[in-house]
Amino acid sequence: MTGRRGAVRARLRRGTGPAARPDDRVELLCLVLCTLLAVLAVPVGLAVGTAVGTDASAEARSQRELRSEVPAVLLEDGRALTGTEAVALASWTAPDGSSGEDEVRVPAGTRAGDTVRIWLDADGRRTGAPLSETGVRVTAAVAGTVTALLLAASAVTLHAAVRALLDRARSRRWAREWAEVEPVWAARFRLR
């Protein structure tokens, strides 16, 4: 751990000392900004999670108000889809008094005459169950976590990209400078 701390100190000093090159200062500025972005990822993720959770909660309330759960009577035995799920023709009466008939998913082994529960929208069309409180929490948590992780990953990637570009520029400059100095040094060693 001490070695790592020393490397970070050396990197910070390299960008601030009197011998610091412009690209050292750019690297330091990038490091500071990317660190700030990574630190801000957590509160931004929390804010996004809260906003998404509030919206999802309002949507769940709206769905609960507009959807109705009604009993549906199976008109035939369930036809197996998988080991635990089947499909069967069923009929139901909507809250407005209209009747409907369609294929519904049912547990395997369900027989004609059995009753299952289905969800209908305000127009009497079949729909899914309203979003549950657990679904709201999961949606908010996933949105917040993904946002925070993307921001942190973006900060790391940005810093790595800037360092790679700066290292390439340093390497090219070093090669140019060495090409100028090397003939002089080589000549000195040949004279001896």
Rank of each mutant, 00 (worst) to 15 (best):
M1S: 14
M1N: 12
T2S: 11
G3T: 09
R5G: 15
V8K: 02
R13E: 14
R13Q: 13
R13F: 14
T16W: 13
G17V: 12
G17K: 12
A19R: 14
A19W: 13
D23M: 07
D24P: 11
R25T: 14
R25K: 14
V26Q: 04
E27C: 06
L29M: 04
L29W: 06
V32I: 12
L33Q: 08
L36S: 14
L37Q: 07
A38Y: 02
V42A: 13
V42N: 11
V44A: 15
L46A: 15
L46T: 10
G49N: 07
V52N: 06
T54I: 04
T54Q: 13
T54Y: 06
D55S: 09
D55V: 10
D55Y: 07
A56L: 10
S57V: 02
S57H: 09
S57D: 08
R61Y: 05
R61V: 06
R64I: 02
E65D: 06
L66N: 07
R67D: 00
S68Q: 00
E69Q: 11
V70K: 00
A72L: 06
L75F: 10
L75H: 08
E76K: 03
E76D: 02
E76N: 01
E76F: 03
D77M: 03
D77T: 05
R79T: 13
R79Q: 15
L81R: 10
T82D: 15
G83H: 07
T84C: 02
A86K: 09
A86D: 12
A86I: 09
L89C: 04
A90T: 01
S91V: 04
A94G: 01
P95E: 00
P95N: 01
D96N: 01
D96E: 02
G97H: 11
S98C: 05
D102K: 07
R105C: 03
R105S: 10
V106T: 07
V106A: 05
A108G: 00
G109Q: 09
G109R: 07
R117T: 08
I118Q: 01
L120T: 00
A122R: 01
R126H: 01
T127N: 00
T127R: 02
T127E: 00
G128L: 02
A129F: 03
P130N: 04
P130Y: 02
L131R: 06
S132W: 03
S132R: 05
T134F: 05
A143D: 04
G144H: 07
T147E: 05
T147I: 06
T147F: 03
L149M: 06
L149I: 04
L151I: 15
L151A: 01
A152Q: 09
S154H: 05
A155L: 03
A155C: 06
A155V: 02
V156C: 07
L158N: 09
H159F: 02
A161Y: 02
R163V: 09
R163S: 12
A164N: 13
D167G: 08
R168W: 09
R168Y: 12
R168A: 14
R168T: 12
A169N: 12
R170C: 11
R170K: 15
S171G: 13
R172F: 12
R172G: 12
W174N: 04
W174A: 04
E177G: 12
E177H: 13
A179C: 01
E182K: 11
V184Q: 15
V184H: 15
V184L: 12
R188N: 05
R188Q: 11
R188V: 09
R190Q: 10
L191V: 06
R192K: 03
